[in-house]
Nucleic acid binder design. Structure first.
Length: 909
RNA sequence: GGGCGGUUAGCUCAGCGGUUAGAGCGUUCGGUUUACACCCGAAAGGUCGUCCGUUCAAAUCGGACACUGCCCACCA
């Protein structure tokens, strides 16, 4: 094996090779026939023409980690990829592109326009899926789906028709949200609210019956209404007051004359009026306000639409026709002022509704649309979560789900777009009958006329996404995929689309399949910018994961996101954190480099890699020397076992940050800092048995750790794993088994014994640093321990302690240490003295001792108080009391030692 | 107007009843240690937002307050 290993890990060189390999070899193709248990997960389909953003990166990292983890544990794993046609946003992009070329998309016509969108889809649709391959998503690409494919389009029609036949989809005339830029209605969810400083305009409407009546009281001549949107007054068809409002009771039934247009409209009474707000009289514009729409229905008022679809005033607006709605507002206010009909203007902050996509102020407009009844669908969906058939994690999102579902309103399904699933409804030009069908009918279902026109509208994108977990598996056919992989195991997505997507999948999934679509939903945090905003490409506040992956490596990005992905809190990504993750990758790389560089030397003795690291050899680790597993090996295997347990536990609970932290600590803190350092001399040992055991154990730990790390850092681990001997049939670490702990690895005694050694070495280093000893100069040391076993352990590991502590000699005794000279550190378990010929800086040493004494005194004080409390002794668990007592005893010894030392120091002054 | 979160070391965040509160980055001091300066060794740094309560025991549970973020909501 050639071992030209670069000093630094180069993800840019290595990652693309493996990304390509995984796809080419079809490694992640799911097999319906494979034995259970099953783990299946569908991707939240990204916009087909989009490109990878940081939110996807987080989604995909978490999904892929769990997919790889399950696969390695032998689950029949399906990670199903695909893309969404993303109605509005894709159409918007193409409209804008055409506009840039000076083409009005309306002029192109529907057919040509849709053709252009398909072209754009063909041209750019590969971007995001290529990026998914780049970042190592372990998807089954043979099962890739697209929401607007012929297959899924058929499924969408099937779903629509069934709901229609069940009377859950209906067509009706209602007040809906209209976006004058996107030129379509929007569902309530697609309208986002933003608090803005607005005004209340108080407008005087002359009471018709008092006009010309000079003798009437001046206050009776006008009825003043307050409005935030003066331009809608042109569509007023009434003014409402509260039926019990004494101020206006006498006016009910009379008319006012609508200013500017001089149209007589009635004064009506309705409970919806809040007597306290404004003037207590409300102008009623049924065609442009949701409340007014309801009032209009109750009182059979006409609806006068005064705003056209593009946001300009229409013919009904009389002299204001053709003006933009906000321009008209200004002009109307001016005109009212000129006529003395504007009583006053006050500031009034209120929430305006904006189109989620275009950020335009949404115009409420009455129109005929297709709706879906939600209550009947919501009930079973609520029940499923209540019964925990679907677990929502984190828990607090459950309430959010319930609140929304319990107050759910009907869903506006139709969109006035061209890109999407066309509504399968045909209107007869003669009988006006509506035919809803799976395939285009040739004649009217009622009169037989062939003069049919299909509804021009398309469905809300989220309708097809709502079918995703089962439409992608072949529903309505009972395919083997559907049988094996549905319900899916888990859904991972951001909490921002809980209502848009998750809730609808639950409702539609249960309705159509009779089964929940997934057993659990993990809603992860959002990645935010430093200032707390949601990252957005359009605002330029987004970090581009593609660039960052190139810069730091995909593994580093994945590790970084995982390490920050604690449930419940949002993530703020930074260069520092990414650099830290990159450094970790580099650390692992260099640990491998160390192994191979040294192995080369060792191989000259005639022992080959296969004898040290073949799968069969590794399987039997840890190896013993002279009948016992060396402490360092027993210790690292015990640490490995603990780490594997923790990582499994963490993944099982979506605690990615814990898994990342554990693995980091193990690899860097335990394996590199201590184990490799400790074992170094053994690797080139003249006694070949020593060396062989050291090498075998080292390789076994290393290889296991690679598998442990693989779900988080797939590229690096794949690369290094292939540099070790593997079975001929073993293609990829991704198909290897996730580490399983063997009972023989667990070893508390080894953990404790090695911990004491670590503590002593650290104490030595501490003294050396504090005393400013020349780091290259070796010195003699003396250690005193009372515990026999501990003494024996020090004797057995004297060489290692001396080497890592830079000591010339280490005396081990149970006697008190000689008082004179040197620098001393004491703990309850040991006293350590280092030969030191300079005079100790008494002031500095006293300060240090005093500070430590103070801490100890506090700790001892609180423990004594607690242990002296009878209620505590009666009620606290035995374990806690024992633990406290033991610690107290130790701390007392330690304090005594420190106090003695301080006394000596001062006496010598 | 409702609901949900956050406030812990200089920064970004873990920890969420039990023994002197942790990590990464940054800082300070010291390092050409036969893998790694994307490194090694050592250290400093916190009365866990404030107050009240529950408990033998509170960063951790409950309440109030302050600041802060987000979601939902048809008061014109």
């Amino acid at each position: 094996m050639a071992r030209e290993i670069p000093k630094a890990y180069e993800p840019q060189r290595i990652e693309p090779q493996w990304a390509e390999f995984w796809v080419k070899e079809n490694l992640f193709r799911a097999d319906v026939g494979a034995p259970p248990p099953v783990f299946s997960i569908v991707i939240p389909p990204p916009n087909v023409t989009g490109s990878l953003h940081i939110g996807h990166m987080l989604d995909h990292t978490e999904i892929d980690i769990l997919a790889r983890w399950h696969r390695m544990r032998g689950f029949n794993t399906l990670y199903l990829p695909g893309t969404d046609h993303a109605g509005i946003s894709t159409q918007r992009v193409v409209v804008r592109q055409l506009a840039e070329q000076g083409i009005d998309y309306h002029a192109l016509g529907r057919e040509e326009f849709v053709k252009r969108v398909w072209q754009w889809k063909e041209a750019s649709g590969g971007t995001i899926t290529a990026q998914m391959r780049q970042i190592g998503d372990s998807c089954d690409w043979t099962r890739e789906q697209f929401t607007l494919s012929p297959e899924l389009s058929r499924t969408v029609r099937e779903a629509f028709v069934r709901l229609y036949e069940e009377k859950l989809i209906y067509r009706a005339h209602y007040l809906t949200n209209w976006c004058p830029v996107c030129l379509t209605v929007l569902s309530d969810l697609e309208v986002v609210h933003e608090e803005r400083q607005g005004h209340l305009w108080y407008i005087k409407y002359p009471v018709a019956d008092s006009i010309g009546d000079q003798s009437a009281d001046a206050t009776l001549q006008f009825l003043t209404v307050a409005t935030t949107r003066p331009e809608t007054m042109l569509g007023d068809t009434a003014v409402a007051v509260h039926p019990q409002d004494e101020r206006f009771k006498h006016l009910i039934g009379k008319n006012v004359l609508l200013p500017l247009l001089n149209r007589a409209i009635p004064i009506i009474a309705d409970e919806m009026v809040d007597r306290e707000f404004g003037t207590g009289a409300v102008k009623i514009t049924p065609a442009h306000d949701p409340n007014d729409f309801e009032v209009g229905r109750r009182h059979h008022l006409p609806e006068i639409n005064v705003i056209a679809d593009d946001g300009k005033m229409n013919a009904a607006a009389g002299p204001y026709a053709g003006m933009d709605r906000f321009e008209a507002r200004k002009k109307i206010v001016e005109d009212l002022k000129a006529q003395g009909l504007l009583e006053k203007i006050t500031d009034h902050p209120h929430a305006v509704g904006l189109c989620e996509r275009s950020r335009t102020i949404v115009e409420p407009r009455a129109s005929t649309q297709w709706f879906c009844s939600m209550k009947p669908l919501a009930e079973p969906a609520i029940a499923a979560v209540e019964r925990n058939e679907i677990k929502i994690i984190p828990e607090n999102r459950r309430e959010e789900y319930f609140n929304w579902m319990r107050n759910i309103r009907d869903w506006t399904l139709s969109r006035q777009l061209w890109w999407g699933h066309r509504i399968p409804a045909w209107y007869c030009a003669e009988s006006k009958h509506v035919t809803v069908a799976r395939e285009a009918p040739t004649k009217c279902g009622a009169c037989g006329s062939e003069n049919l026109q299909q509804d021009p509208d398309v469905l809300d994108t989220w309708f097809s996404s709502g079918l995703w977990p089962f439409s992608t598996l072949g529903w309505p056919e009972q395919t083997p995929d559907l049988k094996t992989y549905y319900p899916t195991s888990l859904l991972i997505t951001g909490y921002d689309i809980l209502f848009f997507w998750v809730a609808r999948m639950i409702m539609l999934g249960i309705h159509f399949t009779g089964k929940i679509p997934f057993r659990a939903v993990y809603l992860h945090s959002l990645v935010r910018t430093g200032s707390g905003e949601k990252m957005s490409k359009s605002k330029g506040t987004g970090l581009d994961p593609v660039v960052l992956n190139q810069q730091y490596g995909t593994d580093a990005m994945r590790f970084c996101l995982a390490s920050m992905a604690a449930p419940g809190t949002d993530i703020v990504l930074s260069d520092d954190r990414l650099a830290g993750a990159r450094n970790f990758a580099n650390k692992i790389w260099n640990a491998a480099r160390f192994l191979f560089v040294n192995l080369e030397k060792f191989e000259q003795t005639g022992t080959k890699l296969e004898e040290l690291a073949s799968p069969e050899i590794r399987a039997k680790a840890p190896y013993a020397l002279a009948g016992a597993v060396p402490l360092r090996d027993a210790w690292i295997f015990a640490r490995l076992a603990a780490t594997i347990d923790q990582v499994n536990e963490a993944f099982a609970n979506y605690r990615f940050h814990e898994a990342a932290q554990c693995v980091y600590q193990f690899f860097w803190g335990d394996f590199c800092d201590w184990y490799i350092e400790w074992v170094k001399p053994e690797l080139q040992s003249a006694a070949s048995e020593h060396a062989v055991v050291a090498w075998r154990n080292l390789f076994a730990v290393f290889e296991t750790a690679l598998r442990l790390l693989h779900p988080v850092m797939p590229f690096l681990t794949e690369e290094l794993w292939h540099q070790l001997p593997q079975l001929v049939a073993a293609k990829s670490i991704a198909l290897a088994r996730f580490p399983e702990v063997r009972d023989s690895w667990r070893n508390d005694a080894a953990l404790a014994e090695f911990a004491l050694i670590q503590e002593i070495i650290t104490a030595v280093r501490n003294i050396r640093a504090e005393m400013k000893l020349d780091p290259r100069k070796k010195v003699a040391a003396e250690i005193s321990l009372l515990d026999k076993a501990a003494m024996a352990s020090m004797e057995a590991h004297r060489d290692g302690i001396m080497r890592l502590g830079m000591l010339t000699d280490l005396k081990i005794t149970s006697e008190h240490l000689a008082q004179a000279g040197g620098a001393v550190r004491s703990t309850a378990q040991f006293d350590l003295r280092i030969e030191y010929t300079e005079t100790v800086d008494v002031a500095a040493e006293s300060a240090r001792l005093n500070k430590e004494l103070e801490g100890l005194r506090k700790a001892i004080g609180s423990k004594e108080k607690q242990l002296g409390n009878d209620t505590f002794r009666n009620r606290a668990p035995e374990k806690i009391i024992r633990g406290l007592e033991a610690t107290l005893a130790e701390q007392r010894i330690e304090m005594q030692k420190l106090a003695d030392r301080l006394g000596q120091l001062n006496n010598n002054l």
